[in-house]
């Protein structure tokens, strides 16, 4: 054996104490470097083995656990018992719920305002400021077409026709990373669903519905005017907002 022993080999040796491999034994007998490493690893292993398997928590968690379980059993909207940790958690949970609702409302307002501004802007052929796409950027609308744009009056999140019609330019705006991130976050949310309080789960669903409706509106508008870059930009921004919302839900409980 010419090269030094690998960390894996040394780790296994430190664990077992003996080597069945003649080459390893020969190498160790002549290589001070590997032998030193082995001694270090054995020392580390002894330290690790000496660590206690049991460590008592600084406080009795049973009352808090029992209260959590009782709450789940009864499905009541009550706060957790007020241990120091839970008091902080309760505050952050409330704050997160407020932020969730606020974010969804803001998105809806921004998106609706942007669509309205865009439609009005197209009618007058003026420049439109797109808040939803970027708070500071100014985008210019496409030149007004001959056809009169259709006003969007009501959201329709379940509009399969709109989705089908839009499955062209709009979807091009989504790159694979965004789609993957959204799917991963949605899957993560579903995994955590059982541990969420019912009202939190409901609020998240409501917020997602609002955002999905906004996205559906934009998809429908984009399907009617597929060459319109502003609408595509708004749609992409809305998808980003959805991902942002899903990330926010990771703080919810």
């Amino acid at each position: 054996m010419t090269g030094h022993l690998t960390d894996d080999q040394l780790g296994t040796l430190a664990r077992s104490g003996v080597s069945d491999n003649e080459g390893e034994r020969t190498h160790l007998a002549s290589c001070a470097s590997c032998l030193d490493r082995l001694v270090e690893l054995e020392r580390l292993r002894r330290s690790v083995q000496a660590t206690p398997r049991r460590i008592e928590a600084p406080l009795d968690l049973w009352p808090a656990i029992r209260a959590d379980i009782q709450t789940k059993v009864e499905g009541q909207d009550v706060d957790r018992p007020s241990t120091a940790v839970n008091s902080f958690n309760n505050w952050t949970q409330r704050w997160n719920r407020v932020r969730l609702a606020g974010l969804a409302a803001a998105l809806l307002l921004l998106t609706s305002a942007s669509i309205a501004s865009f439609v009005l802007g197209r009618r007058s052929g003026r420049t439109v400021v797109s808040a939803a796409a970027n708070d500071t950027s100014v985008v210019t609308s496409e030149p007004a077409s001959d056809a009169e744009p259709t006003a969007i009056t009501s959201p329709d999140s379940g509009n399969d026709m709109a989705r089908t019609a839009s499955s062209g330019m709009s979807e091009v705006m989504l790159d694979d990373a965004d789609i993957h991130a959204e799917q991963e976050l949605l899957a993560d949310l579903e995994m955590r669903r059982s541990s969420l309080r019912p009202e939190t789960s409901s609020e998240i669903d409501s917020s997602l519905t609002v955002i999905n409706e906004a996205i559906a509106e934009l998809r429908a508008a984009s399907a009617r005017d597929p060459k319109n870059a502003t609408l595509r930009q708004l749609l992409a921004a809305s998808r980003e907002r959805k991902i942002e919302l899903l990330r926010q839900t990771e703080n919810a409980s």
Partner: peptide
């Protein structure tokens, strides 16, 4: 502490 609490609630 938080995680321990979560573990037992999840176990239940």
């Amino acid at each position: 502490t938080e995680l321990t609490q979560s573990v037992f609630v999840r176990a239940w």
